[in-house]
Computed example of a mutant assay.
Amino acid sequence: MASTTSGDVLPKGGSVFTTFPDIFFIPEFVFGGLVWILVASTHVEPANPLGWVMFVSVFCFVGTTLWFFIFVCGGNQSSAWPAVDAGFHFLAVVFYLSASVDLAFITYVNGKFLPGTSDLKTYRLEISAVVMSHVATLLYFLHAIFSAIRWKRA
Rank of each mutant, 00 (worst) to 15 (best):
A2N: 09
S3W: 05
S3Q: 07
S6N: 11
G7C: 12
G7A: 13
D8V: 00
V9F: 10
L10A: 12
P11M: 04
G13F: 11
V16W: 02
V16A: 07
D22H: 15
I23H: 01
I23K: 03
F25T: 13
I26H: 02
E28W: 00
E28C: 05
F31S: 00
G33D: 00
V35A: 08
V35K: 03
W36H: 09
W36P: 00
L38G: 05
A40N: 06
A40Y: 15
H43G: 06
V44S: 15
E45V: 09
P46L: 05
P46A: 10
A47W: 01
L50S: 04
L50W: 04
V53Y: 11
V56T: 12
V56S: 11
V56M: 03
S57P: 06
V58G: 10
V58F: 07
C60M: 10
C60A: 09
F61I: 07
G63V: 10
T65I: 08
T65D: 02
L66T: 12
W67F: 09
F69K: 13
F69R: 13
F69E: 12
I70R: 15
V72L: 12
G74I: 05
G75D: 03
S78N: 14
S78W: 06
S79L: 09
A80S: 15
A80N: 14
W81L: 12
P82E: 11
A86C: 12
A92G: 08
V93A: 10
V93L: 06
V93T: 14
F95W: 06
Y96H: 10
S100C: 05
V101W: 02
L103R: 10
A104E: 09
A104Q: 07
F105C: 13
T107C: 09
T107E: 07
N110D: 09
K112A: 10
F113I: 15
L114F: 10
L114V: 14
D119H: 11
D119M: 13
D119A: 12
L120I: 12
R124T: 08
L125D: 02
L125Q: 14
E126V: 01
E126M: 15
S128R: 11
V130C: 11
V130I: 04
V131N: 04
V131K: 01
A136D: 02
A136L: 03
F141T: 08
F141H: 02
H143S: 02
A144E: 04
I145Q: 05
I145H: 01
F146G: 01
A148Y: 06
W151C: 08
W151G: 00
A154Y: 01
